[in-house]
């Protein structure tokens, strides 16, 4: 009846609640305050007590949800599906998401000191990991067939993953390319833009001409171009932008529309 997940969260609830009470008393809690959430006496240090008791409540909610919905409990599922045999289960498959989550956590830790941008990046990574991890955990137990599980997972997640990954890829490439253009001379920027465009166009032509080409070769070429552009972007971003000529001082702001070329350059420079 009680799944492992329920036991985990129930145990965590008990541990956190006891920890909160112990912490409350050890930091100056009075009477029965730490036991009654501060109703009949002080709870000691408020911040630590709140963190622990909040964690206990959150864990209790998770435990309740898991036991209520019989999440991935083969016996319960079989019961509700009206079949006698317990659905065969599959081993947990390997996944990148745990290590990505660890890096996301590290980014959040670093961000708390280095700045909000890094923290938000970590938060976004952890949020994505939470979604992907949840879906993987569900899909692993969906049927007894590992291939079917993978197909089921991809059918649900691919419509989200591919556009998001594509948008992120385009954004990273655009950012990297813009750093290269801003670092190069005017003529150099044109040359670089041409080269990148030719590379992308060339890959497209190659794939169109040889649609049955080994996918590893295509993946390798795409990866090589992508890594080259991103590496170039990082190097040029560190190196900084070229010196820009500023021609707009003798024109007033109210005449800005007449000198769009100059302003667009300044706009690039301030990116």
């Amino acid at each position: 009846m009680f799944t492992t997940g329920f036991k985990f969260f129930f145990g965590l609830t008990i541990a956190l609640a006891i920890g909160a009470v112990a912490y409350g008393y050890s930091t100056g809690g009075e009477h029965v305050g730490p036991v009654t959430l501060g109703w009949k006496g002080g709870v000691g240090d408020h911040v630590g007590y709140l963190v622990l008791i909040g964690g206990a409540f959150a864990s209790a909610c998770f435990a309740g949800i898991i036991v209520a919905f019989r999440d991935a409990d083969p016996a319960a599922q079989s019961h509700y599906m009206g079949v006698e045999a317990i659905a065969p289960t599959t081993p947990v498959t390997g996944s990148f998401w745990p290590v990505v989550g660890a890096f996301g956590g590290a980014a959040m830790v670093l961000g708390l000191v280095l700045g909000p941008a890094v923290f938000v990046l970590g938060l976004v990574i952890c949020s994505l990991v939470a979604i992907e991890w949840t879906m993987d955990a569900w899909a692993d137990r969906a049927t007894g067939d590992a291939e079917a599980n993978k197909a089921l997972r991809d059918r649900i997640m691919a419509p989200f993953e591919i556009p998001v990954a594509g948008a992120l890829g385009v954004a990273v490439m655009a950012l990297a390319a813009s750093r290269i253009f801003l670092n190069a001379t005017k003529l150099g920027a044109v040359v670089w833009a041409g080269l990148i465009a030719v590379a992308i166009f060339g890959l497209g032509i190659l794939y169109a001409a040889r649609p049955k080409m080994n996918k590893n070769v295509i993946a390798g070429l795409v990866l090589a171009v992508g890594v080259a552009v991103i590496a170039g972007g990082i190097v040029t971003a560190v190196d900084g932008q070229r010196d820009f000529e500023h021609h707009s001082e003798h024109h007033g702001d109210d005449h800005g529309e007449e000198h769009g070329e100059d302003h667009s350059e300044e706009g690039e420079a301030s990116e």
């Binding site: 492992t4 997940g5 999440d71 991935a72 065969p88 289960t89 081993p91 390997g94 007894g144």
Partner: peptide
């Protein structure tokens, strides 16, 4: 996080291929 784990007897009945080394 994987929320459940199959008891050994059930896992042994699994029809899935073993995980890679």
């Amino acid at each position: 996080m994987t929320m459940t784990e199959s008891p050994p007897s059930e896992a042994a009945e699994s029809s899935a291929a073993p995980l890679p080394a």
